[in-house]
Structure formats: C-alpha cells, structure tokens
Write a protein that binds this DNA or RNA. Structure first.
Lengths: 168, 168
DNA sequence: GCAATATACTAGGACATCCAAGGGTTTGGA
DNA sequence: TCCAAACCCTTGGATGTCCTAGTATATTGC
C-alpha cells in the first residue's frame, strides 16, 4: 500500500467545487467519488484473497451464484441478469471457468438458443473454499461499523431500486 | 435499461449467506456487494454524460484535477497519487488526452525523471463544459437523499482513512 | 404455414486497470 | 568521485467491462 496522502483528496475536491460556486452539488459529488474509490479498495482486497484460488471477482461471483442454484446450473442469460453484467462478460467468465474445469456448458433441454452453465464437482469445492476465505478475510473485517453496514444497505438499496435494478 | 428484477439479488444473496450459517458476515457481504453494484450504476451514468465530450471518466478525472491545479500542470506521479490509480493508468490517460489535444507533456524544469502534464486551452474549456454537464446531469440528481449523502461521506471517509488513503 | 420479430450467445474491438520489467535520472553513502 | 539504490515513466501482457454486429433458434402474427 502506498504512503497515505497528507490530506483526503476527495475532501479537497469538494472544497474545490465549493470554491467554484458549485456548492449545491459538492456534497453529492464527494459522496459519489467516495463510492468509486471505496469500490476500488474493496475490489483490490477481494482480488487479493481470490488470487491464490486462481479466481477473479467476476469468476467468483459466477461460481458462487451457481453454487446457490438448486441444480447447480443456470442459463447464461439468467446469470447475466442476476449478476447484472453484460452477457458478453458472462461469456468471457464462463470461457475461463470452463478452461479451468470449474464449470461446463451444456445445451438447454428445450430451448436451443440457451446454454446452461453447470458447476463441476471441482467448481463446487473451489467455490466453498473461496467463500470461506472471503468470509473470514474480507467480510468479517469489512472495516465498517455494524450500524454503518445497516446504513449502507439501506441507502444503497434504495438507490439501486430507484435506478431500476429491481422492483420489490 | 433492462427490466427490473422481481427481487433484489443482493438481498437474496444475503439470505443465502444466512441459510448457509454465515449470518455473522451476511450483512457486510451485502453492503460490500451493494457498493460494487452502485459504483457500476454511477459509472455508467457518468460515462453516458461524458461520451458526447469524447471523454471517459478516467480522462475526465485527470482533466478536472489539472484544472484545479494553480498552474494547470502536474507531475504524472502527483496525478497518480491524487487520483489513486496506478501510474500506468495515468500514462494511458495522458496518451489519449494528448492525442485529443487536451493536454501536453512537458519536461520537469529541474528533475529529468519527471514529466509534467499541462492543460491546453482546449483542455481547460472542455473540462469546464464537462464539469457543468456532470454537475447538472449526475451530481444534482444523484438519487441520494441529502442526509444520506452526509452519511455516505462520513462512512466512506472513515473507511478510506482506515484503508490508508490519507492520514488527516 | 411462413415470414417478421424477438431472444440467446459469441466474435471482435475499444477502453480501463493492474502487474512485471526495462531504461533513464537522481540521490546518497562508501 | 562513483556506483548502488531509489525513483519516474513507459511498454507489453493479462483481465474485465461494454458496445456493435452476426449467427442460430423461438415465438408471433397474418
């Protein structure tokens, strides 16, 4: 990790915004920028934990999703929708997971357009081990106070719903 | 935008975590996943606004940073530190901004290792216009309630400090 | 029943990020 | 003084994301 900066660059950006007469949007700008930076920090931590397993976060998410599916299999378009990423990103992840022997593609029994992604036994085992590592190394030490976790879930949940992620 | 899902996929993931006996980390997992997804939504909005200007968020950030520097110029390593991205990412962004005539590289007056990035007049003008667009189209309609913005700034500020971003 | 439309996946390309490695410049200690 | 270590930037490679376009299969409407 690099040496900490003497000052918070996002707080400085907020001051710059205010100095330029954009006080009305300075706070949301700072909040949004902070979300971007926080995501970057968290992603780096997660990738660091997953690396020994030969996984990236994108691949792990897919593996974890499959491991929670009753049959251990999902159509690609379903995975794309649930992970909320572009279909080509799923194609990419499946290519690599399949190359590693963690999933296999199989044809959908009734719809010829659809491809099912299915966990292999190896994939299921790795998903378990990777999840255990993330639980203990990242989620159990998130760095957020308990009540702040609740606040985040509430605030970001509302945001995501308003953004059209889900209806609920 | 795709059709909203009937259920919040992150809330579902949280339930899955709890069902598997990981209740102690289910909430932080949900919060962290929500941050990842929120970042994705915000980035897409921002990129959508910047696209007509021929900018990406990475390039815009650099342009904005330079526009706030007294002299309109910064050493690349300084920009890398302030934007908190890898030096090669700055190299990449500068290459493209320079290709678009928005910045120029110039040698540091006293340190032969260092390269200064300098805004051109064109770059300064575009930064202003892009900022105005982001202010009115994204930050002024962030989708966060005012008190939630304050909560986010507080929670994520603490997190970033603890993660070693700054000392303050 | 068949053509038009919709849906599912993949190929290719643009961009961003990081890491590892290499070449040039400065600094600092022997 | 001089060479090793530190520092700065760039190149090349791996990965991920998205978009556009193309192919194959289903569904719909006349």
């Amino acid at each position: 990790m690099a040496t900490p900066l003497p000052r918070d660059p996002i707080a400085d950006a907020r001051l710059n915004w205010e100095r330029h007469g954009w006080s009305d949007v300075a706070a949301p700008m700072a909040a949004i920028t902070a979300i971007m930076r926080t995501q970057q920090i968290l992603l780096a931590r997660i990738e660091g934990i997953l690396k020994p397993f030969g996984l990236t976060f994108a691949r792990y998410e897919l593996l974890a999703l499959l491991s929670f599916a009753r049959s251990g299999a999902l159509p690609m378009n379903k995975a794309s929708a649930l992970l909320q990423v572009h279909p080509t990103s799923v194609t990419n992840a499946v290519d690599r997971l399949q190359g590693a022997g963690l999933v296999i593609r199989s044809p959908h029994p009734t719809d010829g357009r659809t491809t099912l992604i299915e966990l292999t036994q190896e994939g299921r085992t790795l998903a378990k081990r990777a999840t255990a590592a993330l639980n203990s190394e990242v989620f159990a030490q998130s760095g957020f106070a308990e009540q702040d976790v609740d606040q985040l879930i509430r605030i970001l949940g509302t945001f995501r719903r308003d953004a059209g992620d889900f209806s609920d």
